[in-house]
Simulated scan of single mutants.
Amino acid sequence: MDVTFGDLLITYFLQMLIYVPVILVFSMAVSLLLNMNIKGRAFLEQFTFYRL
């Protein structure tokens, strides 16, 4: 086992511990905004789904 492989593996898991919760919170916030009846909801829907 290479020394750099272990370092990269630790770095990868630390990044995953940071990125996954951030993405989940952002996704939940967007989904809650899309379910509310607010002004500009159509724009938010277009901006969100345009990239798909």
Rank of each mutant, 00 (worst) to 15 (best):
residue 7 D to A: 10
residue 38 I to F: 09
residue 1 M to P: 10
residue 14 L to A: 10
residue 15 Q to T: 06
residue 39 K to Y: 03
residue 30 V to S: 00
residue 11 T to A: 15
residue 37 N to V: 04
residue 45 E to W: 09
residue 16 M to Y: 10
residue 2 D to M: 04
residue 9 L to F: 12
residue 2 D to E: 07
residue 24 L to W: 09
residue 23 I to S: 09
residue 17 L to W: 12
residue 11 T to G: 14
residue 31 S to Y: 10
residue 14 L to M: 11
residue 44 L to S: 03
residue 40 G to P: 01
residue 28 M to S: 12
residue 37 N to K: 14
residue 45 E to K: 13
residue 51 R to V: 15
residue 22 V to A: 09
residue 17 L to E: 08
residue 30 V to G: 01
residue 43 F to D: 02
residue 31 S to R: 11
residue 13 F to G: 00
residue 36 M to P: 00
residue 37 N to F: 05
residue 6 G to W: 08
residue 10 I to Y: 09
residue 39 K to V: 03
residue 42 A to V: 09
residue 8 L to F: 01
residue 1 M to D: 09
residue 49 F to D: 03
residue 38 I to Y: 00
residue 26 F to S: 11
residue 12 Y to T: 07
residue 42 A to Q: 07
residue 28 M to L: 14
residue 22 V to K: 07
residue 4 T to C: 02
residue 32 L to C: 04
residue 43 F to S: 02
residue 32 L to M: 12
residue 24 L to E: 04
residue 32 L to K: 08
residue 39 K to E: 04
residue 7 D to H: 10
residue 24 L to H: 04
residue 15 Q to W: 13
residue 52 L to A: 06
residue 34 L to T: 04
residue 47 F to K: 14
residue 13 F to C: 02
residue 37 N to Y: 05
residue 32 L to P: 00
residue 29 A to T: 06
residue 11 T to I: 05
residue 49 F to V: 02
residue 33 L to T: 02
residue 16 M to G: 01
residue 44 L to T: 08
residue 25 V to R: 12
residue 21 P to F: 03
residue 29 A to R: 05
residue 16 M to T: 05
residue 6 G to H: 03
residue 10 I to S: 13
residue 11 T to R: 14
residue 28 M to F: 15
residue 45 E to G: 08
residue 38 I to K: 05
residue 40 G to S: 02
residue 51 R to F: 14
residue 44 L to W: 15
residue 23 I to F: 12
residue 6 G to Q: 08
residue 16 M to S: 09
residue 29 A to Q: 01
residue 8 L to H: 01
residue 11 T to C: 07
residue 25 V to Y: 12
residue 12 Y to I: 03
residue 1 M to G: 12
residue 21 P to H: 05
residue 29 A to S: 04
residue 38 I to V: 14
residue 17 L to N: 07
residue 16 M to C: 09
residue 41 R to Y: 03
residue 27 S to G: 08
residue 12 Y to E: 03
residue 2 D to A: 11
residue 36 M to Y: 07
residue 50 Y to H: 13
residue 28 M to K: 14
residue 36 M to Q: 15
residue 12 Y to F: 15
residue 40 G to T: 01
residue 39 K to C: 00
residue 5 F to W: 08
residue 34 L to K: 05
residue 10 I to K: 15
residue 45 E to Y: 13
residue 34 L to Y: 02
residue 8 L to D: 08
residue 4 T to A: 09
residue 38 I to P: 00
